[in-house]
């Protein structure tokens, strides 16, 4: 169910994308007006996943402040409540997390036009959480042994790289998605008892944690700037007497 929702939202976002070319005119432009915005967004995939799986609740909201047409300050926070059980153990974890960093827009201004964002965010994350093992069963030659571990509080620090895409759906309303690649830097939990899950980070099993979010964002422009458009370099003229194969390759690249 979770994967079906992910595919449907991806198809809707991708099919709605159309590049923007600034003002509607056929004449070549040397600059474009870009609104700088303050944005407030919230993750919608977490509540949707919780609707299908009551063991995982992830809520996240974020704030963006455009520094210029390329960079924006990013601050986000959220709450997570995670339960996992299988045949030999039952684990619970809940806590809050905060992330701060910078989002970089790699779309050219004449393409983004202040309506589209395609780029990558670099964030530092901090998580404060409690976890406990309600029961853990160990069976061997000597018999079955069941114990539990009481609630413990710990911290987690991590780095996140999150490429993504946002598109303006209506005035002041955007939707978008991002994938997250996270690297755990430090956890205060003992070496032998690394938490199975860290809020904001995800499962700790692999060296890198993957995640995906879908956002709905409210944008408010506070300033407009003019950004120059770099003129395209004209194609080099064909060399007379050159091989046909070489010329064909250059044409394909241009």
């Amino acid at each position: 169910m979770r994967r079906i929702c992910a595919y449907i939202i991806s198809v809707v976002l991708f099919s709605g994308y159309t590049p923007v070319h600034g003002q509607d005119t056929d004449a070549p432009q040397d600059s474009v007006t870009i609104p700088l915005k303050v944005s407030f967004g919230m993750d919608v995939s977490g509540p949707v996943i919780y609707f299908t799986n009551k063991n995982i609740l992830n809520t996240e909201a974020y704030f963006l402040y455009d520094l210029d047409h390329k960079k924006a300050l990013h601050a986000s926070g959220g709450y997570s409540n995670y339960k996992y059980s299988q045949y030999n153990y039952s684990y619970r974890n809940k806590g809050i997390f905060f992330k701060a960093g910078v989002d970089f827009n790699i779309l050219k201004p004449e393409i983004s036009g202040g309506k589209y964002w395609g780029g990558v965010g670099l964030l530092y994350g901090l998580s404060r959480f409690t976890w406990q093992v309600d029961s853990f069963s160990h069976k061997n030659y000597w018999g079955k042994h069941i114990v539990s571990m009481p609630e413990q509080s710990d911290w987690g620090h991590y780095l996140e790289v999150s490429p993504g895409f946002r598109a303006e759906l209506l005035k002041n309303l955007s939707i978008g998605w991002s994938i997250s690649l996270r690297k755990l830097l430090f956890t205060s939990a003992p070496k032998d008892l690394k938490p199975a899950y860290i809020p904001g980070y995800g499962s700790t099993g692999n060296a890198i944690s993957f995640g995906m979010n879908y956002f709905i964002t409210f944008n408010f422009a506070f300033k407009k700037i003019r950004v120059g458009i770099k003129p395209e370099t004209p194609p080099e003229p064909e060399e007379e007497g050159g091989s046909g194969m070489g010329t064909g390759i250059i044409r394909g690249i241009m």
């Binding site: 299988q86 093992v133 853990f136 114990v147 199975a196 499962s203």
Partner: peptide, 10 residues
């Protein structure tokens, strides 16, 4: 007690 992994448990 030692945590192996999410899949394997403790």
């Amino acid at each position: 007690v030692h945590f192996i992994s999410k899949e394997c448990g403790y």
